[in-house]
Design a protein around this nucleic acid. Sequence first.
DNA 1: AAACAATTCAACAGACTCATTGAATAGTTT
DNA 2: AAACTATTCAATGAGTCTGTTGAATTGTTT
Lengths: 222, 222
Amino acid sequence: MNKRDFKDKVYGALSRVTKALSNPHRLEIIDLLAQGPFSVEEIANNTGMSVANASQHLQTLKQARLVRITRNGNFIHYSLAGENVFHAWAALRELGMEYNTDVEKVVTDFRKGHGEIAAVDASALARMLEKNEVILLDVRPEEEYRRGHIHRAISAPVEKLQEQLKHLSKDKMIVAYCRGPFCVYADEAVALLKKKGFHAMRMNEGYPDWALRGLPIEHTTM
Amino acid sequence: MNKRDFKDKVYGALSRVTKALSNPHRLEIIDLLAQGPFSVEEIANNTGMSVANASQHLQTLKQARLVRITRNGNFIHYSLAGENVFHAWAALRELGMEYNTDVEKVVTDFRKGHGEIAAVDASALARMLEKNEVILLDVRPEEEYRRGHIHRAISAPVEKLQEQLKHLSKDKMIVAYCRGPFCVYADEAVALLKKKGFHAMRMNEGYPDWALRGLPIEHTTM
DNA sequence: AAACAATTCAACAGACTCATTGAATAGTTT
DNA sequence: AAACTATTCAATGAGTCTGTTGAATTGTTT
């Protein structure tokens, strides 16, 4: 094998991976699967795709070895093939946020549209938690909280948040987090909390980012 | 702006970046540009593309803000838009190497074809260098060595290596490194050295990986 | 084994992507 | 300003990617 053949093969094989990542729906699926395993139907519902379309994209991701499946009764659950997949996704996300003005602009515009939502990053939140300065809300669906969540976080899925308001203090800062920087549950939660007179902000990163950094979590061993 | 619009915009913007990465030639260009700035013609020569074709791909990369240009006399030099681009490329490389059997197989097959070339990784090499156990050769073109190289490395471009053999000891281990894990200069150098009776191996990573980890380097400040 | 639910397949049309060619542009040197 | 060089543009045809539809498959429960 000569030099050129070798390079063609290597970069060709790698481009098969990046091709699999080169579609907005598939990126959204990966972002979702960072939370844990989901069935095709759940994925379709969470992303607004048809089931057939979601399945097709999942096949593409599976062929590129970015996701793997586990059977569970009638359902097939898809999850990321490994930690490296989230790593690569996080790196691409950073890349988009830092150099691609579009991405950052869309995100900040959206947050302004919801009333100047303030945000902290993971390390700042970690310090605040240590000093016991904040109440931390996990506003993802309960199932995802159950799979794993930040140490000391309270489950408060955004649809049920309204009912839980009476248990919250208006004197303490409340921080909400969800799936990741593109997840809007935390924005919705903070908007509601502020409207009701609480002090609230969101954490920019999501649970997977927190866990990857080795910050304190609680999770069920499965 | 509603939730769905927001997500479509975010993942759409990000997919424009990943689309730019979803082509073997463009990946090869990024891997090359990790060494520093190159003109279109140099890029074309290094990758076996036509100049027009290379230019077209460079436009794509520029639009995705993955590369930027600097004028220099008659030439336009392209370089990576920032450290994050190399980060993302490294993450994708890892992903390919770990989960995509193809990539790893191609690489190991190629090295076997060249006579079982042994390799060390960056941290092992760093330890060996500290103990002064090895001679380190930078076998990239001299220009790239001049831009920056590993502390204590000797420049020995693979085409000129033959002439430098007489200055090398047959008693000490010789380690060669080049641009990165897919660069074959180090393999060629090690094959030659072993044929001539030297003890030699390659470092898996390249100069940019070494520098990114903050290991000791020497470089001209420009 | 039949009924059922979840998932995948097949096929289509429309939109993109690629390499190649030769011509056009922009900037530099004479 | 003319000649020159490096780079980009525009147009083409072959190939690939997408979403949609409805039918087929696979595995589970009755």
